[in-house]
């Protein structure tokens, strides 16, 4: 079997390694596909659905779809942009995301995606659910208000930290993150560091990076990926 395959992204031929996802292959070639739950070093959960693309006409999450030879992938279209926007809007309406008083603001991937996608208002009714802040752990806050159920921390705890300190419980709108016991989670765990939003934060670290100097303060999310490709200009 050949090590490499050739596929097309928005009409442009790229090469990718067997075993890569569409998302990884695109990024390596300087094409940014917005995403929230996928993280390079973790197994993709496919939970958020932001990274939807069309592959040979069929809709698919690019983070869980492996590359294969000859695929025609559509990343940029009004329709796909609309899907991504709507999903990000859903996440804002579903949880309690108060950016003005969140320590993650400026470093938050959800917020950064909303900036990038040009979301200035949310079409869905804000739910304002009643959720808890779990401050029991000596070093870690778990703020369920901000959790988007992406599964990064659960995945990291299970497969990177080899602890399964975190799991999801409940189903549907009652699905939420649960911790087995504070002893299982350590401040150095990967599970603690991978949260895209402000749901898992280390204590005593607030505002160590001042506003104005944060990850997405000056460049949109994805700009880093796109800088690998001189043909793409970050919007």
């Amino acid at each position: 079997m050949p090590e490499e395959v050739t596929l097309t992204i928005d009409g442009k031929k790229i090469t990718a390694k067997i075993g890569q996802s569409i998302l990884e292959a695109a990024e390596e070639n300087g094409v940014y596909i917005p995403h929230l739950c996928a993280l390079q070093e973790l197994h993709s959960t496919g939970a958020c659905r932001v990274c939807m693309v069309r592959i040979d006409g069929r809709y698919s999450a690019s983070c869980t779809q492996p590359v294969s030879d000859g695929l025609q992938v559509e990343v940029e279209s009004d329709e796909l942009l609309e899907i991504r926007k709507m999903i990000v809007e859903m996440l804002f309406a579903e949880g309690n995301h108060f950016c003005p008083c969140c320590e993650k603001s400026g470093n938050c991937e959800l917020q950064a995606l909303a900036y990038r996608l040009g979301i200035d208002s949310v079409r869905f009714p804000y739910q304002f659910p009643q959720r808890e802040v779990d401050a029991e752990h000596p070093d870690v806050f778990i703020d369920h208000n901000r959790c988007i159920l992406c599964g990064r921390c659960v995945e990291a705890s299970r497969n990177a930290d080899h602890k399964t300190a975190l799991e999801f419980i409940g189903r549907g709108k009652n699905k939420r993150l649960a911790v087995t016991g504070i002893v299982d989670l350590d401040r150095a765990d990967k599970a603690v560091s991978v949260c895209p939003v402000g749901a898992i934060l280390l204590k005593r670290q607030a505002f160590q990076v001042p506003l104005g100097q944060r990850r997405f303060d000056h460049e949109p999310i994805g700009a880093e990926v796109e800088s690998r490709n001189p043909e793409v200009r970050t919007p």
């Binding site: 939970a47 659905r49 579903e94 549907g172």
Partner: peptide, 21 residues
Amino acid sequence: FCEESCGYCTPCRFGNEVILQ
């Protein structure tokens, strides 16, 4: 459907709720 969505992915977990409302 709201009752039976597993809650794994965003569009189903929240989309059904919004439609219901």
